[in-house]
């Protein structure tokens, strides 16, 4: 009996080649292909997710910028409005002040005129009283009323006015 059987040797080689072809066709190729396809797919979806995140970030930045701009604009508008309102309020107050001053002035004037008038009246009535008293004291002297009165008034007024 020999150590190596040539038929078994050849059979084994043929068997192995056949087994290699079978396994390559049914096991190694499909499985490797499947796994490669899957990893490609995973890679693709990861890439897409990355891209989407990037896009979202860009959009976010844009929106933030727009919001900031709107905010700034709003602030400017409010500032402007405040300033305008302040100016207007100041103007109104000033006008009111001026008017009030004018009213006071007028009131003062009126009061003055009133005073003068009252004094005049007082003077007139005083002089009448004095004349009456004087005429009573002197007797029934008929004096040309108006002349005397006017003179008295004039003198009295002069002293009064001093």
């Amino acid at each position: 009996m020999s150590l190596i059987n040539p038929y078994t040797f050849i059979f084994t080689i043929i068997n192995l080649v056949v087994l290699y072809l079978i396994l390559r066709k049914f096991l190694f190729k499909p499985v490797t292909q499947f796994m490669e396809e899957r990893s490609q797919r995973i890679k693709n979806s990861l890439d897409e997710a990355d891209r989407k995140v990037h896009e979202a970030n860009e959009l976010k930045a844009q929106y933030e910028e727009i919001l900031k701009k709107a905010d700034d604009e709003g602030k400017a508008i409010i500032d402007r409005a405040e300033k305008y309102a302040k100016e207007k309020a100041e103007k109104i107050i000033e006008e009111a002040n001026i008017e009030a001053k004018a009213i006071i002035e007028r009131a003062k004037e009126e009061a003055e005129t009133e005073k003068i008038k009252a004094m005049h009246d007082l003077r007139v009535s005083l002089s009448h009283l004095i004349i009456e008293a004087a005429s009573k004291a002197i007797g029934n002297i008929n004096i040309d009323d108006d002349k005397i009165i006017n003179e008295v008034v004039k003198e009295a007024g002069a002293s009064w006015n001093k």
Binding site: Y7, T8, F11, T12, N15, I22, L23, L27
Partner: peptide, 22 residues
């Protein structure tokens, strides 16, 4: 052509592997 147990067992293994991979 003599077919030894080696060859027969190899065929069995081939059958097992083929069916298993399918």
């Amino acid at each position: 052509i003599p077919v030894t147990t080696t060859v027969v067992v190899t065929w069995i293994i081939m059958a097992i592997l083929t069916i298993a991979s399918l």
